[in-house]
Amino acid sequence: MNKRLRSDLLLLGGLAAVGLALFALLSLGRDDGVQVLVRVDGVVTQRFSLSEPRSYTIQTRDEGVNELRIDDGAVWLESANCPDCLCVKQGKIRYAGESIICLPHGVVVELSGQDELALDAVTQ
């Protein structure tokens, strides 16, 4: 019985390890973003294609400004007049499901992938 308990524990540890390894492997296979969604206070104000380079100034409440840049399949906030500029420090995002958040201005920049776009087309 003790021998079996030991194999059970080995199995448990092994499976946990394999799970973590597979998870890491699968995160590498994530999808590239397709569409950039800009939300201000929860409302979608702009949609851009991630494949077209552009600059855009997000106007928010209290004269807040976040400068958005899209280039080279990535999107980022280049500068902003929020107090801590954490949104700028979050850097570039390029995969579906990632987002940049600026709490003081209530700005969320989201990346959606091909799947969400197909879902949108169905639901709209």
Binding site: A16, G19, L22, F23, L26, R30, D31
Partner: peptide
């Protein structure tokens, strides 16, 4: 038809082990 399910993967893996136990 998508890999995005993988986001659930770690949760389901862990819950499978716990439920099995």
């Amino acid at each position: 038809g998508t890999w995005r399910v993988a986001a659930y993967f770690i949760a389901l893996w862990a819950s499978g082990i716990a439920a099995g136990l």
